[in-house]
Design a protein around this nucleic acid. Structure first.
Lengths: 265, 265
DNA sequence: TGCCTTTATGCACGTTTGTGCCGATTGATA
DNA sequence: TATCAATCGGCACAAACGTGCATAAAGGCA
């Protein structure tokens, strides 16, 4: 699809437009890679990135550039937080996702990171109730996207009401990637909103496997509304520096615990 | 490939029309190539490109020109194009949207611009089948968002299939903001995809009013699939430099034509 | 027909833009 | 702290650009 083995010479605007595509697609670009890809000097790429950054179309960083997040709402606010940690979790999570699967992506900034981290060639059917995740999935060519509609809860950032619950009931995913506000061995997986819990439980119960990727700050805490018990969770992805006893505790409950790699991009 | 071995001399309008074809076909044109192909000086080509750009029919860039809205591309690709023009259209469009309304936002990069241009305080119920637009609407606090779900067509960038059609049928919006690939007084409003046309027609028929905002390059052109006739369109927003007879033509068909302000923010 | 205006085109000129290269500076990492 | 890569600013050069002018063809009007 984007294979540019033969290099026609590109106009400046075309090149910059392609850089933006790469940004959206892979979440970051490196100056040196782009230079090689477009067959121009690194200086030229740096100038491009500087211009794009000046126009507010990307964020300039040492070595390349990152996409600028359209910050504002509650979900999008969370997106910008602890990005390296989430990226590390996401990298581990995509290891569980195989071509051919039907996967449900629940609303969560970590799950958005997972969607963005999906490898380019992967083929799967992805369902989600979260517009932001759907938008991210659209950047990956091989993915069949099913959007669960309904009234959007702006705190959660997704459709979770009666209509959404009715529609999602027809779904029997191979894997359900849940977001959580708290994970505790006794309380199980918990969230802040009643209806959100309801929705998540419904999807989880209909899924062959349930995966949750959580940052350290959520481990051992619980929110008001229970989604599923600990043992209903198939796989739990935690950070590399999660409390030492985490693996033991959850493993004995039958949960497969995966430690994400170091946060070293 | 497009071998013009025999060089008949072309009239100016013919040449410019052919340039537009090349643009649509290959996504870009180079001044030097066109000069050689049409057997005229580069100066002449540059003049042509300048005129086309002034009429909003292409985007002038150093070395040649780019199409203002290429067909067969995904929604996210279209978003970055002709942004000032779309912003100007959007600014006019928001004038039609009043607090308290129920508005449907159809899939289109111009409509995304409209969603983004909504004033901060506005209160309305917005429905959309487009994740990208839903995400943009989430940035505005006073808006009630209804997401239409279903299988996502990645070219259109929205849910337009059977499921989406069934769900949208319950909707009776005060205003429907349609996207279009072509607008012609005889052909009406047209798009590239069959199912997309079907979906749009359904929404438009159930809406009290229909609005379409189009860039110059779409005026007077038509795509394969008809959505609605010209007279079914309530309001048409065109650019300030749209062909002079536009207002007359569509007004006599009963369409309210609004000229957007100059593209000078 | 003769004259004038308009329009399309090419040419010459000076100007702007895109790019690569070099040297100095800054930032990351150990 | 030292080291090395990335970055920035300036410079140079070529290509692309816009403008003004000249020319020629087309068309209007008396």
């Amino acid at each position: 699809m984007i294979g540019f083995s033969v290099q026609t010479e590109l106009l400046l605007k075309q090149r910059q437009s392609l850089i933006q595509d790469r940004l959206r697609l892979s979440g970051r670009v490196l100056a040196i890679d782009l230079a090689q890809e477009f067959n121009v000097s690194e200086d030229t790429i740096r100038r491009d990135l500087r211009e794009l950054a000046a126009a507010g179309l990307c964020e300039r960083v040492y070595g390349g550039a990152l996409p600028v997040s359209p910050g504002g709402t509650t979900l999008t606010q969370r997106v910008g937080l602890a990005t390296e940690r989430k990226a590390a979790l996401a990298a581990s999570a995509v290891g569980v996702i195989k071509s051919g699967m039907t996967v449900f992506f629940d609303a969560s900034s970590t799950n958005l990171a997972i969607a963005q981290a999906l490898p380019a060639g992967i083929e799967l059917t992805a369902a989600t109730n979260t517009p932001l995740i759907a938008a991210a999935l659209m950047e990956k060519p091989g993915i069949n996207i099913i959007l669960i509609g309904g009234k959007i809860d702006r705190l959660v950032g997704a459709a979770i009401g009666a209509k959404a619950q009715r529609d999602v009931e027809a779904l029997r995913p191979d894997l359900c990637i849940l977001g959580a506000c708290g994970v505790d061995i006794n309380a199980g997986l918990t969230v802040f909103e009643y209806e959100d819990a309801e929705f998540k439980r419904l999807v989880a119960r209909n899924s062959a496997a349930v995966l949750a990727a959580v940052t350290n700050d959520k481990l051992g805490t619980s929110a008001p509304h229970a989604v599923i018990t600990t043992r209903e969770c198939t796989t739990l992805i935690v950070e590399h520096d999660a409390p030492a006893d985490t693996a033991d505790i959850y493993s004995t409950a039958g949960v497969a615990v995966v430690h994400a790699g170091e946060t070293r991009p």
